[in-house]
Structure formats: C-alpha cells, structure tokens
Amino acid sequence: MIVNKRRRPLPLTVLSTTFVLLWVLMAAFPFIWTVWGSFKVEQDFFSRDSWWFAIEGSRTIAQTGSAFTGDGYYGAWVLRDFFSSVVNTVIVTLSVVVVSLTFGTLGGYALARSGYRYTFWLLMLALVFRAMPHITLVSGYLLPFFEMNIWGHLPTAIIVLVAINQPFTLWMLHSFFLSIPKDLDESAMVDGCSRFQAFRLVVIPVMWPGVITTGLFSFLLAYNDFAVTAMLLSQPNQTMVPKIASFLGTIQQEGNVMFAVAAVVSATAPLFVLVMFFQRQIVSGLTAGAVKG
C-alpha cells in the first residue's frame, strides 16, 4: 500500500477516484456501446440524425417490430458463413496453444537449467526475434510457400504462429521455470530419473500455473493475429479476424455494416469470458516477464 487511507486528504481521494471512474468508463464504454448497438439496425446504430436513436431503437422497432434484433448476427453467422471461420479459429488457436506450450516448456526448461553462456545469447536472439514485425516475416514466407504449395492451409498458419510465438513463450516459461527450485529436479535425478523423466514427472506437475498463464498468452496471440492469418490463409480457411476484415471490403458497400458489428461482438465475447475467468493469471503473466526480465 502506498498511502495510508485514513490520512489521505479528501480532495485527493475525490480526484483519484474520479480519475479511475473516468478511465473505467473510457475502457468499458466502447464495448458496452457496441454490444448494445449490435442488436439494432444500421439506421439506429449509425444514425445520421442523433445517436439517441441507438438507445431508443425506434427504427429497429419500425423495421423488425422489437427493440432488439438478431438480424446482424443472422446475417454474419448464417448468410456470410462466419461460422466456418469460427471453426477455423478454434482449430488454429487450440493447435497453436498446444504446440507452443510443448515446444516452449522443453526449451524454457533447458534455458532455465543450463548454466552455460550460450543460454544468454539464445535469450537475446529470442528478444530480437520477438521485436520483428510479423508482416516482415510474412513477406518472407509468401513466395517460398507458393513455390512449395503449402500456402493457404491451416497447418501452415499454425506452425508459423507457433514459431512467431516462441520467443515470447520461451522468455515467459524460462522465468517461470527459474522460480521452481533446482533442488526439485536434482533430487528427482538422484532418486533415479533421467533428465526428461525429472522434467515430466516432477517439474511439469508443479509448473501448471505457469503453463496455464503462458498458454493464455499464446491463445491471445493466435486469436488476435491479423497479419499472418490474413496473408497465409486461403478464403475458405480464413479465421475470424481476416473474415471480419473481408466484411469491411464487401459488406460496407452493401449497407450491411451491422453484419460486421455482429461479427466483431461475436469475436470479442470469448475474450470477455477469458478475462473474467483468468484475470489473475493474465495479471501475473504480464508481471512475470517484467519482474524477471
């Protein structure tokens, strides 16, 4: 605690509370507004006259007979086949998380336990790799992938996302592994385990919190990615984010921008749930890197 609450002057309390309230409003309002608006018709949510229509929903009532309508969702999910991109997203994100964690726990463990100098250089290299803009890497993939005929498939995007994810995953898991006492795997090895057995039987069972936290961030990276999925996946294999981007090109002209709004809300909902359930892990994950790195 920074300050003792009892001795805090009132104006300061008022000021800081107002500030926090203002920030919460800034952070939350766009989402609440968009979720609300996604159940309206375009003439309400994008009203040329007054945004008050979006709250009353008068046009929505006029057009559909009720103050709320699922037309946007129907249009996106059914008419525009948003559903298949949801399936693709599930496949891609789950695979990326599983493979990233498998590679990352092995590598992070090795980096945390080896005392040699090259671990330092590998971590530095990972830092440089971490800084590479994804789109520059994508421009390196396209031509070779076309030539090898592996462009457009889900597995290609998955392995690419795993690789792009590795530097971050390695850093994070490395710092989690450092927090597990060395004594643990060493006693396992003296007790009769090989290095890998010690890793699997003794270290991983106590690493779950770290693995889950890192998994969340792998998930977020794969889920939120636009550069890789937009450029490396063919039309039928598209995941949600590039699908939404493609809505902008086609739907906006047709006047069905509400499809995009509904798709955006659909894509954000899982993230809401994620933050709700894993808030603690996300916070600890963000700080784990900071405290150790």
């Binding site: 498998t102 590679f103 990352g104 092995l106 590598g107 463990y109 090795a110 980096l111 590998l122 290299l125 990972a126 790799f129 590479m132 520059t136 890497l137 390196g140 993939y141 392995i159 690419v160 795993v162 690789a163 792009i164 590795q166 530097p167 995953t169 390695l170 290095r195 890793f199």
Partner: peptide, 17 residues
C-alpha cells in the same frame, strides 16, 4: 530440449529474414 523451439524459430523467423 531446446531443439524443437530453436528449429521452429530458425525455420520460420531466421530463414524468412
């Protein structure tokens, strides 16, 4: 231990560069 991770990074980050 580090091979899978390193290989992925070399193939899909270093090589693309």
């Amino acid at each position: 231990f580090i091979m899978p991770s390193l290989l992925a990074m070399l193939l899909f980050i270093a090589l693309p560069i």
